[in-house]
């Protein structure tokens, strides 16, 4: 299922959140990256049928999101995990999932309960399923959020910061689950954690100030930093100037800096770029422009 976004604009009063976004999201995993306030959550809310676009067109498969019917149709095939998932603290994990399943139109009680039990197991909450959500830790709430998104076996899955609050093992497990789910589905992964995109997605887009500043493959994004990534060992002050220090590691005689910069700092050697370097390089270029 392909998502086609053309000239998408969203204004909140005088504040523009999206400024003419053009993007095609094919089936499979798709990563969406961008700094805070770039418009990622607004874009996700529009795709989830929660917000209406101020201008432009969005089509999810054959459904036109500018119409009520189109938005409603998408909701039937959607799994959505918002960044800040509110839950009902007085319900148990099982009850919460069952309630959301009812609201997702799963009428057959036996099938619904079986699906809830299956997902509870998938997210590893069997022991906590009968406890009220008010007793859940942040990571457990995230897991219940993931489970609710998968209840209706969605063809379009939109997840906003899904791995925030999960421990490393859970994060890896969830990433693998997303990749396994992708297949012929469309999975839109919005995150600040570049590593999550690097490990799951072939395609990625970068949003900055409500505009798409990169749209391509993860390899392409990493290549955006070709010839701009340097490693520098120094016992003096941290390198400064028109550059971004991506990492700083203490070594035996000082510090080892990984730097993204158009001009190599004195004494630095070139290194192969990663996806994170590519992200930094694109942001650097755009901000300079």
């Amino acid at each position: 299922m392909e998502i086609q976004i053309t000239g998408l604009t969203k204004q909140f009063g005088d504040v523009p959140a999206l400024r003419g976004v053009d993007l095609t999201i094919p089936s499979g995993m798709f990563g969406l990256l961008g700094p805070n306030g770039a418009g990622k959550t607004t874009l996700m809310r529009i795709l989830a049928g929660i917000l209406h676009a101020s201008a432009g067109a969005v089509r999810v498969g054959t459904h036109d999101l500018s119409t009520d019917a189109g938005r409603q149709a998408v909701k039937w095939i959607l799994g959505y995990l918002p960044q800040e998932l509110g839950v009902y603290p007085d319900l148990t994990g099982t009850e919460f999932l069952e309630y959301i399943a009812i609201l997702k139109g799963m009428r057959d009680g036996a099938r619904r309960r079986a699906r809830v039990a299956q997902l509870i197991e998938t997210v590893g909450l069997e022991d906590a399923a009968r406890r009220q959500l008010r007793t859940y830790s942040g990571g457990m709430k995230r897991r219940i959020g993931i489970a609710q998104a998968l209840l209706n076996d969605p063809r379009l899955l939109i997840v906003d910061e899904p791995t925030a609050g999960l421990d490393p093992e859970e994060r890896i497990r969830f990433r693998n689950m997303l990749v396994a789910l992708a297949g012929d589905r469309t999975v839109l992964l919005c995150t600040h954690i570049v590593e999550d995109v690097a490990q799951t997605s072939h395609r990625v887009a970068l949003l900055l100030g409500g505009r798409v500043v990169f749209d391509g493959t993860t390899t392409g994004l990493a290549q955006a930093a070709d010839g701009r990534v340097w490693s520098l060992d120094s016992s003096g002050p941290a390198p400064s100037g028109d550059l971004t220090v991506v990492s700083a590691i203490a070594i035996e005689r000082g510090m080892r800096y990984r730097v993204v910069s158009e001009v190599p700092p004195a004494g630095a050697s070139a290194v192969a770029p990663t996806l994170e370097d590519g992200y930094v390089a694109v942001m650097q270029k755009r901000r300079a422009a």
Binding site: Q72, G86, I100
Partner: peptide
Amino acid sequence: SDPAIELRLSLPRSVRRS
């Protein structure tokens, strides 16, 4: 107000109906 309003708005059964 509903604590899970954002999630509810993404579901097929409308918030208005609930």
